[in-house]
Nucleic acid binder design. Sequence first.
DNA 1: TTTCTATTTGGCTAAGATACCAAATAGAAA
DNA 2: TTTCTATTTGGTATCTTAGCCAAATAGAAA
Lengths: 116, 116
Amino acid sequence: MEAVPEHEITMKTQRKYEARVLVVKAMAHTTRMFIVDELSRAGERCVCDLTEMVGVDISTVSKHLTILKNAGLIDDEKRGNQVFYRLKVPCIMDFFRCVESVIECNATGCKTCSCK
Amino acid sequence: MEAVPEHEITMKTQRKYEARVLVVKAMAHTTRMFIVDELSRAGERCVCDLTEMVGVDISTVSKHLTILKNAGLIDDEKRGNQVFYRLKVPCIMDFFRCVESVIECNATGCKTCSCK
DNA sequence: TTTCTATTTGGCTAAGATACCAAATAGAAA
DNA sequence: TTTCTATTTGGTATCTTAGCCAAATAGAAA
């Protein structure tokens, strides 16, 4: 009989993980994390407001927004000559609750996080 | 009166986002995503089994495990001359449910994800 | 003790991500 | 139409990440 691991990664599951990673990576940057948080709070924001809040070049903010949009996390709408972005995925905030409980765990040193 | 954005990012919120990003980044790689998923399924795995499943160099897997451990997502225990890793944070699986619904949304093109 | 096995660490290279500036675009205002 | 404003896109330099190999470590087996 063969050794323990009965399944290697198939092409199908490989693609599943890649799809997940696209979404997760979109949030794996401080600025983008802020943008998602801010949009969940404010409902919508134009690029110029986000730029002022974040304090980096507007072209940089624009590129961050593109990454979030490609991941399907936000949507945009042009009104006048401003572009407004809004959060497309409210459950992302539940996710942060989970992340926060991980951080809490790390700080307190608890063995298994209860994730309340 | 001043323009719209009343808050720039403070040092404190900046650190909050950095803490989140550490956790999110830990999952932002196909191999690490697989490892987390596999540990949630199997309970625990040694480095050698994970290595066989993933199919990259064992030193690479070891480094991925270090990243997950530093983020507080997994724990390790040495028994005999193997090291076993286990998932420390069960709620991470709820999080994937959220991510999956984003992916679902992206595929179907729905406007606002309901995140069931 | 020496040897073997599992894992980690250091070093290096290749690929990817991020930031800025400058130039292009799109549409509103004049 | 021309001009102005908001945003996006292209280019480039810099930093980070991921991979492999080789060497170090730790402990089990002989």
